[in-house]
Amino acid sequence: MEGLLDVRGLTLSVPMGAGARARLVDGISFAIGKGEIVALVGESGCGKSLSALALLDLVPEPVRVDAGEILFEGRDVRRLPERDKRRVRGGGIGFVFQEPGAALDPVRSMGEELVAVLRRHRGLNRQDAESEAVAWLARVALPEPEKRFRDLPHQMSGGMKQRAMLALALAGGPRLLVADEPTTALDVTVQAQILALLHDLREGLGLSVLLITHDLGVVAETADRTLVMYAGEIVEEASVSGLFDAPRHPYTRALLASRPTVRDLPGQRLRAISGNVPEPGNRPPGCAFAPRCPSVFERCRGERPRLEGEPLRRAACFLAGDSGEGRAA
């Protein structure tokens, strides 16, 4: 697979008072190939959204990038001159967020926003940019694109806005789309449309997608490959079928097992995971999942397991090499 993005040892932290810093993201590494849809899955606070912002060197204060390389098309985004960084943002890597429209100017029409992106990143003149903008609105399957061109954000439904945001993110011709919980604020029927649209865009444009989500259903529906994050670390990487058929990390296994399924009987109890997600700055010294893990043994509490395995099939668990269940206490 041809490489597009290669993230190496990305580490983010935030000040904790008294000069101490809490690690929010702890040395994660992953790659995305051309035309691939990779899901970054995790719960709130696991560091998935910050990691995505770091790809554009846009982590908000007071979060700091302590270490890491973000190689996009072979160049480290963090070490680019400011002018080139801006070219990567929107021109190389496009972004859509959970709340469609939060980033939109309320008194500027969708079409004007698109025209501005097309002129900036594609160097089109006004007239060409306008017709290209309408073409983009059509490409994201907005009905009556000429009419939508003049719509202000408040005149559009949530689903229409998210389509428009996709057009805006893609009009600059990026090779990678980062989509941070793009359907979480939308109704399930609209979610299905947007996820289908992501697939169509990948097919049509050869786009790569980093899809950030907490929802394993969205992963099952959309991703080719999956990175599972827990408490600032990637704990498992697998193809989507590998993840659902043979999860290697106990956290992944527990998450999959805790979901209600259509095979459950009414009133049936779910296989819940005990305990809570650890707070940043209060993570256990060994494996961060150890306090909640059904297979925990002594080594897990003192030593942190490394993410190991074959390329693109890794897990950070001392038991990952085993069948999973068996272990010597």
Binding site: A141, L142, P143, M156, S157, G159, M160, R163, T189, V190, A192, Q193, L195, A196, L197, H199, G217, A220, E221, V240, S241, F244, R259, T261, V262
Partner: peptide, 17 residues
């Protein structure tokens, strides 16, 4: 619930609005 149950092309629904 599982990647094998993926529906290609998404659910048939006219775009809301």
């Amino acid at each position: 619930a599982h990647p094998s149950e993926r529906k290609r092309g998404g659910a048939a629904d006219a775009v809301e609005g």
